[in-house]
Design a protein around this nucleic acid. Structure first.
Ligand SMILES: Nc1ccn([C@H]2C[C@H](O)[C@@H](COP(=O)(O)OP(=O)(O)OP(=O)(O)O)O2)c(=O)n1
Ligand SMILES: [Mg+2]
Length: 1200
DNA sequence: ATCCTCCCCTAC
DNA sequence: TAAGGTAGGGGAGGAT
């Protein structure tokens, strides 16, 4: 019957099994042993364990009740589960089942429940229960009435053939489909239960574990070896082979199909494919006419060799497979059976040797050297014997390849298939390899094939002619070498099964259609629980949690061709580092959800969600294993440096107290006792701190306070230095020869005014707990708060004057001498290229790590020197960064430096983005060159005339939309379609251009927006879809774009003519993220505008309050309170506008303005008047700001 | 030179 | 309809 599966009368042939023998179709050995669920549930953990117990209890209860009833055996062997309201009621049906020998399941059990009784099902359930026996209650009542078991097919609720299940045609039903995917409380498990790739991955791990345990428990006896030896010993004399290394690769032929055929022997010889979608052979419309259907996007997991003859491949879509092979017979998955056969397979091989590396459920590598020696057999003899045993015991054929290494073994297997084996002996290697195609080499996939094509290399013979250098330049050092060796049949990998797990993850990239954040959260909790189970199974906890999102590619259609598939996507990943490793679903969920909110991704656009756990530590039951600490960061180095200045006693630092306690002066080195205050950093075990970043933040605060203490020490050192210098002067005056030949720097270093000697730490201490000032309190004064000049020690270090007399005992002053040496030591300019600043602005730079923890006096590094040489004014320095003013007079020189710093090999850096196998392009990663351009862009081009600002008169806008486009997906489809095509195209382009720009702009080191990459879909046989939209430039249509003018400005806004020449680059503000107080101080020093937007997000203390979200909240609060509009809010709004305009974050501004508009518009009476006035004022300012920064008019609606 | 982080690629 | 998961190798580019 299966041959005709595709034809109309038997279209659900695959369900025939079910007709005669409802679920469960097959009893596996495990099931027969007992409760088939048990193992799963043990594995799944507590909650499920509970469910099992509960299910069993209910069953027991049911049986007890049944005993009492007056029973018939009408429903023997039938187990029902009632879904939803029925008539008669579930209770009544239960009673009827009891009476007539059936079983009633309160919970649906996939394996044991044979029929589901329902009168009505939501669409979601229909999809879930697709292919299951869903029957109307009348089946029960009628059967009882007629006294015999009627065929349940006659009572099927939604017979597949007639296709009369409710279709989600209406919008309402459509929303139910969406709810299914995200909202179904069991979606994760539902999905995994059906996912072949999930099973494959799990089985791989389990196979590895099986091998591991076989290795661990092996007593060195191998029953198979003896049989093998005896079998061949009785044969007539055979040529003896020299002992040498032999590796075998063995792999079942079309595994899933072979297993599937065990119970379908009549199908042998026909083209078969294993895949989902039992009714995928007909279109809905075509069902009646019995037309073939060729557009199924169900993936073929495995197809047999008959099917492969027609050109089919594993992984192909069913639809296209049917086109190539119309006779294809489709059989369903039988996951448990695959697993069972796999285990037998491993056990068989393990009876010969345990030198096994598990590759997958149907595939392994075996080092045969020992078996062959022990059994005195040749490779071919062994493999023949083994393959026969495998076939005898599993009923499936496996093919094998043997050779002196893994590569040859693998390649030989491919040649040997199906149902064969092949041994590549050493002399044959050369000729064997010459004919191997490069695409057949392991590790060569879509991308490598592209590269080989470019090289014009097809087979290994040609590959051998390519030089190692060339290969390495194309594939990288390791892969280049690998392919170089592979071409010659060389491979030095050894068979090894044991590896340490480095990550644990769970992804679902199918069926994700969510409409609310709540749905996301619900789903993510489920996923987190799954991950917890996996972590627990692996006995690990993780320090690093990563949220992996697939977001619909802006160019991709909302719904891809593949039903509920993810389509083309961008990958967005974000991670948190946790101080304590965790396995808690709760924590993972909380952090993951927080990460999701941080990404700002629209839930509706999410097509895939994953959680990955890394930096694992073992949680051995036995183990009080030393746990791996989170990564040491610069702070710890800073602390080390601090410790170096003055020897810290070994005891704990003094004055360990709470965070806010003031620094105790009496404890400082020179004020009171010998040592400065230092507080313990918060212990990593502090339960109130979860994220590493939180800990760092706190630790830095402590460090700063410690540094305040150190300041005193340094001051004293400085005093000493002065004294020492004075002595030198006195000495000079006395006519004695100077101690050093060069000493002018000492004289200049003597500050006329000791007050100038100040340290950031002192300032910071004042404000440690003060909140951020909303505006710069020092904005009026141009003077830096701190000034210090340190003369460059020139190029040459000081040389001791040989003529100088030795120091007297009195003059010996080790501390001062040390510091003097330190200050005058010549240092190479080796950090220079990495750290730079742009003229005329206070600039912040990160100090080399060697200087972390050092305070001002010690900043004798090339950067500081350079700054001073250039006439810059040193402003301040703190743990890891420094601030200074630079002089524009040196602009050219600075630019040269920049050029030099970024001299870059054009050839190499050209990264136009790489097309992946789906025809998508990934963005070129921002290179140094791009970075440099960004920097140069910051420098205002001298007299390049700006384009005249566009005319301001607003065209009449329709409807309530104030800012027309934020995303094409947000536009009402109808409205969109009503627009002229070219206008639509233009809008789309603009939007995409903006997106891309934003994606580049937002590059945060360490954060995932940096790379917008296209989700790699595995190599499809199908040709990649034609590129949907070429990245062609905007249509030059003279038509007025619908998009607002704000979107026109793509460039960094040039400063207006009258503004002073100003530009800034914050090279690395990462430390600011850790030091809110510092941020405040820097804010006071730096005009807000000088901090690039790309950095702002990293300083939430500074800019967080200016995020659109916060602004919206403030607006709401303010409007809600009975007070009138306050000045502070207006100022904040203006600041916000400045930042938004400057950073092209117009959509943020849009959000805020929209909210303000709506809030104000919602008011009535006097309050409305007051607020309307404020609205008008603020928006007027907005327009002015936009005019200044964007050179373009901002269209903001006025209140009616 | 060697590390680290964030990806891409590959295999089943 | 359809169930496009998962772990590890390694490259690019930056920091040390
Ligand atoms: N894209 C793929 C590739 C494989 N598999 C599953 C089904 C296969 O039966 C099993 C083993 O994979 P193989 O690569 O070994 O392929 P087969 O065993 O099917 O064929 P053969 O080994 O004969 O080439 O993994 C899958 O689901 N999807
Ligand atoms: Mg196979």
């Amino acid at each position: 019957m299966e041959t005709k599966a595709a034809k109309a009368p038997n279209q659900h042939a695959a369900r025939q099994d079910m007709v005669n023998q409802p679920v469960p179709v097959k009893r596996t050995a495990r099931e027969l042993d007992g409760d088939g669920d048990e193992e799963d549930d043990k594995w799944r953990g507590g909650h499920h364990g509970y469910m099992v117990v509960k299910k069993r209890k209910l069953l027991q209860q049911f049986r007890n009740e049944a005993k009492e009833a007056n029973s018939s055996s009408l429903f023997r062997g039938i187990s029902i589960h009632v879904n939803g309201n029925t008539s008669p009621t579930a209770e009544e049906l239960k009673r009827l089942m009891m009476l007539h020998g059936g079983t009633y399941h309160l919970y649906y059990n996939t394996k044991k429940t044979t029929h589901i009784i329902a009168s009505n099902l939501p669409y979601t359930k229909i999809v879930q229960l697709y292919g299951k026996a869903v029957v109307k209650p009348a089946w029960i009542t009628e059967s009882i009435r007629q006294g015999c078991l009627l065929p349940w097919r006659d009572f099927e609720l939604y017979p597949v053939a007639s296709n009369n299940a409710p279709q989600p045609a209406t919008e309402k039903a459509g929303s139910e489909v969406i709810a299914l995917k995200a909202g179904d409380p069991n979606y994760v498990n539902q999905f995994y239960a059906r996912s072949r790739l999930h099973h494959l991955s799990m089985w791989k791990v389990e196979s590895k574990q099986l091998v591991q345990s076989l290795q661990d428990t092996s007593d060195g006896s191998f029953p198979g070896r003896e049989r093998l030896r005896q079998y061949y010993a009785q044969l007539p004399s055979r040529p003896k082979e020299a002992l040498k290394k032999v590796i075998m690769h063995i792999d079942f032929d079309c595994f899933f199909v072979s297993v599937g055929l065990l119970s379908r022997p009549h199908l042998r010889g026909k083209p078969i494919a294993v895949c989902h979608g039992t009714t995928g052979f007909k279109t809905k419309e075509g069902a009646k006419e019995g037309q073939e259907r060729f557009d199924s996007k169900s993936e073929i997991s495995s197809c047999n060799y008959e099917a492969r003859n027609a050109g089919l491949k594993n992984g192909m879509y069913l639809g296209s497979a049917k086109q190539m092979c119309p006779d294809l017979v489709q059989i369903p998955y039988e996951f448990e059976e695959y697993k069972r056969i796999s285990t037998v397979f491993y056990e068989i091989v393990a009876s010969y040797t345990i030198d096994i590396e598990a590759i997958s459920c149907d595939e392994m590598l075996v080092d045969c050297t020992d078996v062959l020696a022990a059994s005195s057999t040749s490779p071919v003899e062994f493999v023949g014997f083994l393959r026969k045993e495998i076939f005898d015991r599993t009923g499936c054929t496996a093919s094998a390849g043997l050779g002196k290494n893994q590569l040859l073994a693998r390649l030989a297997t491919r040649k040997a298939k199906p149902n064969g084996h092949m041994y590549v002996s050493d002399p044959e290697v050369k000729s064997f390899m010459n004919n191997v195609l490069v695409k057949d080499l392991p590790g060569v996939g879509y991308s490598a094939v592209e590269k080989f094509d470019k090289l014009g290399v097809k087979d290994c013979g040609e590959l051998q002619k390519v030089s190692l250098e060339k290969l390495q330049s194309v594939f990288g050092p390791k892969n280049g070498l690998k392919f170089f060796n592979y071409a010659r049949g060389t491979d030095d990998r050894v068979v090894a099964n044991d590896t340490v797990r480095k990550s644990v993850s769970a992804d679902v990239n199918y069926g994700m259609r969510m409409t609310s954040v709540a749905q996301f959260e619900a789903f993510f909790r489920e996923l987190s629980e799954e991950v917890q189970r996996r972590l627990d199974t692996a006995r690990v906890k993780a320090h690093l949690i990563t949220l992996k999102l697939l977001v619909r590619h802006p160019d991709a259609p909302f719904e891809p061709d593949k039903f509920m598939g993810c389509g083309q996507c961008n990958a967005v990943n974000k991670s948190v580092s946790l101080i304590q490793p965790t396995n808690s679903a709760e924590i993972i969920a909380t952090e993951g959800i927080a990460l999701f909110k941080k990404t700002g991704v629209d839930v509706k656009e999410v097509r895939g969600i994953g959680v990955q756990c890394q930096r694992l530590v073992q949680t051995n039951a036995k183990g009080t294993e030393a746990k791996e600490a989170p990564k040491d960061r610069s702070l710890d180095k800073a602390k080390k440096n601090v410790g170096k200045k003055v020897d810290l006693p070994d005891e704990e630092p003094l004055n360990v107290s709470d965070e806010t306690a003031d620094f105790d002066e009496s404890q400082t080195s020179l004020g009171g006792s010998a040592m400065p205050v230092a507080r313990l950093r918060p212990p990593m075990s502090d339960a109130s701190l979860r994220k590493t970043s939180e800990w760092s933040r706190k630790a830095v605060r402590y460090d700063i306070q410690a540094e305040v203490g150190w300041t005193r020490v340094y001051n004293q050192v400085w005093e000493n230095l002065q004294q020492w210098a004075l002595k030198v002067k006195a000495q000079q005056n006395s006519g004695e020869p100077p101690r050093f030949l060069e000493h002018t720097h000492i004289q200049e270093a003597l500050p006329a005014d000791k007050d100038k000697l100040n340290l950031v730490g002192q300032l910071v201490a004042k404000d440690v707990s003060a909140s951020l000032p909303p505006r710069n309190p020092n904005a009026a004064t141009k003077e830096p708060i701190l000034k210090m000049k340190i003369e460059s020690p020139k190029k040459l270090p000081l040389k001791p004057n040989p003529k100088a007399r030795a120091k007297t005992q009195d003059e010996l002053d080790p501390v001062a001498d040390n510091e003097f040496q330190r200050m005058t030591k010549d240092t190479e300019h080796k950090f220079w290229l990495n750290y730079f600043a742009v003229p005329e602005v206070p600039s912040i730079t990160r100090m080399p790590s060697s200087l972390h923890g050092c305070t001002l006096v010690y900043l004798d590094n090339p950067i500081v020197r350079r700054v001073n040489e250039m006439g810059g004014k040193f402003v301040a320095a703190k743990v890891t960064w420094a601030v200074w003013h630079l002089n524009t007079a040196y602009e050219d020189e600075w630019l040269d430096e920049l050029e030099g710093a970024y001299a870059y090999d054009e050839e190499q850096s050209a990264d136009p983005g790489v097309a992946n196998k789906r025809g998508n392009k990934r963005m070129a990663s921002p290179t140094k060159k791009v970075h440099k351009q960004m920097l140069l862009d910051l420098n205002p081009a001298p007299a390049v005339p700006l384009p005249p600002p566009p005319k301001t008169p607003e065209p009449e806008r329709k409807k309530t939309s104030m800012f027309e486009i934020t995303s094409p997906s947000q536009i009402d489809e109808e409205v969109l379609m009503a627009l002229p095509a070219d206008l639509r195209a233009e809008m789309y382009e603009t939007f995409i251009a903006q997106k891309k720009l934003k994606a580049q702009d937002d590059g945060e080191p360490g954060q995932s927006w940096k790379a917008i990459s296209v989700f790699p879909i595995k190599n499809k046989v199908e040709a990649p879809k034609p590129a949907r939209n070429e990245p062609k430039k905007l249509s030059q249509s003279s038509k007025q774009p619908l998009v607002t003018d704000m979107f026109r400005s793509r460039k960094y806004p040039a400063a207006s003519q009258e503004a002073p020449k100003k530009a800034a680059k914050v090279v690395d503000l990462v430390e600011l993220n850790l030091v809110p107080e510092k941020a405040a101080e820097v804010l006071a020093e730096l005009p807000l505008e000088t901090i690039p937007s790309s950095q702002q997000a990293r300083i939430p203390e500074l800019f967080g309050s200016r995020s659109a979200d916060t602004m919206v909240k403030r607006i709401q609060e303010s409007v809600k309170s009975s007070r009138g509009p306050d000045e502070a809010l207006a100022l904040q709004l203006e600041d916000f506008c400045v930042v938004c305009c400057r950073d092209k974050k117009i959509s943020q501004l849009e959000t805020v303005v929209k909210r303000l508009y709506r809030e104000v518009d919602g008011l009535r009476g006097r309050r409305r008047d007051v607020w309307a006035k404020m609205y008008e004022k603020v928006t007027t300012h907005f327009r002015l700001i936009a005019q200044k920064y964007l050179k373009s008019a901002l269209k903001i609606p006025t209140l009616p």
